[in-house]
Design a protein around this nucleic acid. Structure first.
Lengths: 213, 213
DNA sequence: AGAATAGTGTCTCTCAGACATTATTTG
DNA sequence: CAAATAATGTCTGAGAGACACTATTCT
């Protein structure tokens, strides 16, 4: 009968100071290296619960978007036979807290060396994030509850790494029907901007066409 | 320290007599029920190897398309704490053999009762198969090495459950650049048909647009 | 008044979808 | 030559992408 050690790991992204960042924790085995936050799965919790707990010191669970990414389990991967179920998470600005512990956010542009195969996993998660934005309006998951269309466009530009046309962006995001205007506006420099929010009743159905090919 | 029993299960599809079929095996625990073929993962094999072995009595591994689908691990799922990494497979006509053992192919139109959550898993795999066909030319993975465009179209029609326009089908499949004509034709009733094959050098890249929305 | 940011409409071109006839073989 | 199946092209409408100016607020 065959038993294995089962872990979860999470690639969680946030937006901070115009950069896309991922949460990392110092490697316990490889000095100077970092790892994806992770955790052993206990007997009585679901995989998704375990993934949420791996983030708990830095991200409020109920605010974050969480989905399963891939399960890595080659026997050569790590010293002992170890299977990792990897989750992918998006942390909206208002779900992030400064917790204790050694975890730190690192910009995707300047990642430190990562232990094991975690660099590959992170690269895969980033690809997945970009795909998600291309064919859905998922970008709002990185913003506060209410946000302006300029903020949302800025999010897309940071994640996709290219600039987008303002009018086309607005047209497509609004036609996708995933966000709706609120009664609020946000004032600051220049003309105040309408605030939008996610439509909780929005159909989660997959969009046939990409929003931003 | 936390250890779990780790299994793989496979949802494998084939095309047989104008029907899409999945391979099932009689449930060892629930009488009159069937299960997805599966297997415990041993200490020295990869998850994908284990998945291929779960099929080995009926499908030749090297011919089949195999990809990871999802990992199920809720503690309530099954009696003991059991985690299943589920794979998705397509068996081309010439990779199927009649092996010993109780496994049998069942048309997805008339499935027997399935044990545990295997009906959900199979439904999810079927959704995935349909998506795959909609945005890629993956249908050829259910056919022999060389096949006619009519056969390929027929495959799409069976899997998607709708009829497709012949001229549009050919245009899009060929423009996708994933298959190419061979020097061979197949004679039978009526005008002989050109045989096509998968282009081994084809880019595996994701197509931006769906082929059949 | 000037600076800053928000917000809006049109045109063109490509591509998806609908559609019917001709071509080649076998019996 | 009749039956069966393979193969092929065009038109139309919708949507993607390019593009520049007006509106509102703050200082």
């Amino acid at each position: 009968m065959s038993f294995v050690r089962l872990n979860v790991h999470v690639v969680v992204f946030r937006l901070h100071e115009d950069a896309l960042q991922a949460l990392l924790t110092p490697s316990t085995e490889q000095p100077e290296h970092w790892e994806l936050p992770g955790r052993a799965v206990t007997a009585d919790e679901s995989l998704e619960d375990a993934a949420a707990l791996a983030l708990a010191s830095r991200v409020l669970r109920d605010e974050a978007y969480l989905e399963q990414l891939y399960t890595y389990g080659d026997p050569q991967r790590t010293p002992q036979r170890l299977v990792s179920v990897v989750y992918f998470a998006l942390a909206p600005a208002d779900a992030i807290r400064d917790g204790p512990g050694p975890e730190a956010w690192h910009s995707i542009q300047s990642l430190p060396p990562l232990a094991y195969d975690h660099a590959d996993i992170l690269a895969y998660a980033l690809r997945r994030l970009r795909y998600k934005l291309e064919y859905s309006a998922a970008g709002f998951q990185l913003l506060p509850d209410e946000f302006t269309l300029s903020q949302l466009q800025h999010t897309y530009e940071i994640v996709l790494g290219e600039s987008l046309d303002k009018r086309n962006f607005r047209r497509r995001i609004l036609e996708a029907g995933i966000i709706e205007p609120t009664p609020h506006v946000r004032s600051g420099e220049g003309r105040p901007a309408r605030l939008y929010r996610y439509r909780p009743d929005a159909v989660a159905e997959v969009k046939a066409r990409r929003l931003f090919p």
